[in-house]
Design a binder for these strands. Structure first.
Length: 730
DNA sequence: ATGGACAATGTTTTT
DNA sequence: CATTGTCCAT
């Protein structure tokens, strides 16, 4: 097989490893995708494994498609039949097939992150829980974490009052999901793992079927995924995992790099292969990457080397403010492109938070230069898109109360909050889902329930119900696109959206884009359309064909590479993000994130920090990222703005606030008295309850206190305004 | 029932 | 500042 000739010794060792557990520790750019694809090709082409016996898990759908293409190329024939996809997509497939063993049916809908928060909010309100104290966001995070640990609502450990609240919300949340015939992201993993755990027949079926398991980005698997794999591998034990603990950046999503250690413990006979040679970057870039990551404690030092040569030094550019940061990026790109040595598509600009993309986009737009923005949220999160998807989801699954409530009065059709309340109460009385009730009301005078409603409500709901009936009939006869067009037409959506403003025009363009997407599902049908939409990853939206710079978050950059990379916003508070300041584990993850960004670059790397940064409309001074301290100065080509250069040593006494700005330091400090509140003491706040003082300082005749509240998080209050009560001193 | 005006409030990362 | 929610007048 030709493809084996292109591998180095370690890669070959991994590819040809005998059946059984294999752990491949692959540094960035070490060819792990090549190893994975070659392994599959080798299994099929040499070992005679049938494609249908192979299960390969990737991190994004895009990676799955790429892998599929590459395997096909290597084998020279169609490799169809391999089960290939993300954990979530694979689980969704299994759950639909095995729905008869589960408390929902096979046309369940998948609740995305927006839906998850909305549902949490709804439950919190219903249970009369203080929404300020227990925000839907934070409660849902707890639920999500529990699910990732395979803890059900009934098993949720209650140690304090907050746990009690979470447990109650969790329980109700699950009831709602099941009543709506829905599952959320985490449920996809949870249900599948529990199914395999509790049903030995099904476990054996799948474990027998998949003789070979391959897993990419193993360091970012969570506990549920680990258990899932363990069950799938329970018969053949041929599990081939590839990962790099230095690139673990998703712990906030439950990912646990300790799964790598767990793997070594659970499979003591595993072959371990180390891939260290880097084929991507120049040595200058690798040296910088190592300088950064070596500051993380408790890691096995690994050296990265390349035969690509030293290459150009990494540039550190300091600019005046974030506007200038954006124009520096755009100007540098256009002048490099003008020299004709590189193309626009060779560039990537990476940042820590999505909000940072805005100034960059503006800078590109003002110069009339095209760019690509990675981020599914940006498209699927739009109101008009969510509306149409909610319509489709409702037609597909009338029990989806959630989508129903979203669209029942959008565009407005005289079904206001009052009518909706009446509908809800009534539907509970007759034990029908809202959807079923509306379907009935839509049957006009043949309706059983219509007489129970006021004339006004009856007429408005019967019109909507009639539409719903029609669409339901369409479901098997029409393609997703035809159904969508019918809905758009029936509810006069274009009139609703096109209000004469530019924004309306934009929104309609988005709808047209969604039509284009729907058109690709003529064959695959509505079910697949809705599922793919729910499970798109940010990277999936990347359009490889356009030759333009790519704008993306550092997280989204994982697994990608670009000839020339800019990492912007190298300021404390942004990278590392302020939320990691108090937590050493989180801080280490920030560093890994920076490391991931650096190692995406093939030829050149630009790091940019700015002296001022704006938030809330004001531009304020910043502090340089502490990670830059870890880089030996001779590794960098430093450039500064002509004026306003930060004095060295200046920043060590300054703390930066959450937005990467530092607090203005006022020189008349000595005149002020001691702060009244000491770090470490506990205080009581009228609204937020008990908290601990983290920091306090006097400013302008008053005292500013940072307090950490268990349920709310970090808050900054002005002592004279907030009525604070000291509970304990230190 | 609806839409506009104003106030409050919040900014990590995403399958 | 930008989004979201709430209140109020129509």
């Amino acid at each position: 097989m030709d493809f084996l000739n292109e591998l180095n010794l370690q890669q070959l060792q991994a590819v040809e490893a005998n059946a059984g557990p294999v752990l491949v520790l692959a540094g960035p750019g070490s060819g792990k995708t090549r190893v994975l694809t070659s392994r599959i090709a080798h299994l099929v082409g040499v070992k005679g494994v049938r494609p249908s016996q192979i299960l390969a898990v990737t991190f994004t759908n895009k990676a799955a498609r790429e892998m599929d293409k590459r395997v096909e190329k290597m084998l020279g024939v169609q490799a169809g039949g391999i089960t290939l996809g993300t954990f979530h997509a694979i689980c969704a497939r299994i759950l639909r097939r095995e729905a008869k063993h589960l408390p929902f049916n096979s046309n369940f809908v998948i609740f995305d992150s927006d839906d998850q928060i909305n549902l949490s909010k709804r439950v919190i309100r219903e249970l009369n829980i203080d929404e300020k104290r227990y925000t839907p966001q934070s409660v849902h995070t707890s639920i999500s974490n529990a699910k990732n640990e395979l803890i059900t609502a009934q098993e949720y450990p209650v140690q304090g009052y907050r746990d009690e609240v979470v447990r109650r919300v969790y329980e109700r949340y699950q009831e709602y999901l099941l009543a709506s015939n829905g599952v959320d992201f985490d449920d996809l993993l949870l249900w599948t793992a529990l199914l395999l755990e509790q049903n030995s027949g099904i476990r054996e079926t799948y474990a027998r079927r998949y003789e070979q398991l391959l897993v990419d980005e193993f360091q970012d698997t969570n506990f549920a995924q680990y258990v899932l794999l363990k069950h799938l591998a329970s018969i053949h034990r041929s599990i081939f995992v590839v990962g790099d603990v230095d690139q673990s950046i998703y712990s906030w999503r439950g990912a646990d790099y300790r799964n790598v250690l767990r793997f070594e413990k659970d499979y003591p006979d595993a072959q371990v292969v180390l891939l260290e040679q880097n084929y991507r970057s120049t040595q200058s870039i690798l040296d910088l990457a190592m300088a950064v990551i070596d500051h993380n404690p408790y890691r096995k030092a690994r050296r990265l080397f390349t035969d690509r040569g030293v290459g150009a030094k990494v540039t550190l550019q300091e600019v005046y403010d974030d506007r200038e940061e954006a124009s520096f990026v755009v100007d540098t790109i256009s002048s490099l492109v003008a020299r004709n040595e590189v193309q626009p598509g060779d560039f990537a600009v990476m940042y820590r938070t999505n909000a940072q993309s805005r100034l960059l986009e503006e800078a590109f737009l003002s110069k009339n230069l095209p760019y690509k923005l990675v981020g599914a949220q940006r498209f699927y999160g739009r109101r008009e898109i969510k509306d149409i998807i909610a319509y489709l989801r409702l037609v597909f699954n009338p029990n989806d109360d959630f989508s129903l409530l979203r669209v029942i009065n959008t565009p407005t059709r005289g079904i206001g909050t009052k009518t909706i309340q009446v509908l809800q109460t009534y539907s509970q009385q007759v034990r029908l889902s809202l959807g079923d009730l509306l379907l009935d009301l839509g049957r006009g005078n043949k309706s059983t329930h219509q007489k129970s409603f006021s004339k006004r409500a009856a007429s408005a709901t019967s019109v909507f119900g009639a539409h719903l009936n029609n669409w339901r009939e369409c479901i098997n006869a029409c393609s997703p696109l035809q159904l969508m067009d019918r809905i758009l037409d029936d509810v006069a959506y274009s009139q609703y959206i096109l209000d004469g403003t530019d924004e309306g025009q934009d929104r309609w363009e988005n709808i047209k884009e969604l039509r284009r997407l729907a058109a690709e599902y003529d064959q695959k049908g509505l079910s697949n359309f809705l599922e793919d939409i729910a499970l798109v990853s940010d990277q999936d939206t990347l359009d490889a064909s356009a030759n333009a710079p790519t704008l993306l978050t550092l997280h989204a950059a994982k697994g990608l590479e670009f000839p020339i990379v800019f990492i912007v916003g190298l300021n404390d508070g942004l990278l590392p993000h302020v939320r990691s300041f108090e937590d050493p584990e989180a801080m280490q993850e920030e560093r890994r994130l920076f490391y991931v960004g650096i190692t995406r670059a093939k030829d050149s790397l630009f790091l940019v920090d700015s002296i001022n940064r704006s938030a809330f409309g004001y531009s304020e001074p910043t502090v340089q990222s502490r990670f830059l301290d870890d880089i030996p100065p001779d590794m960098l080509k430093e450039k500064h703005e002509g004026s306003g250069v930060r004095r060295s040593g200046y920043r060590s006494n300054i703390r930066s606030d959450q937005w990467g700005r530092h607090e203005s330091v006022v020189v008349r400090n000595f005149k002020q008295s001691q702060p009244q509140f000491q770090p470490g003491s506990r205080v009581n706040h009228a609204v937020w309850g008990e908290g601990m003082v983290l920091n306090s300082r006097n400013q302008d005749e008053d005292e500013i206190v940072d307090i950490f509240f268990q349920d709310i998080g970090l808050k900054r209050v002005v002592a004279s305004l907030a009525k604070l009560e000291v509970i304990t001193d230190d």
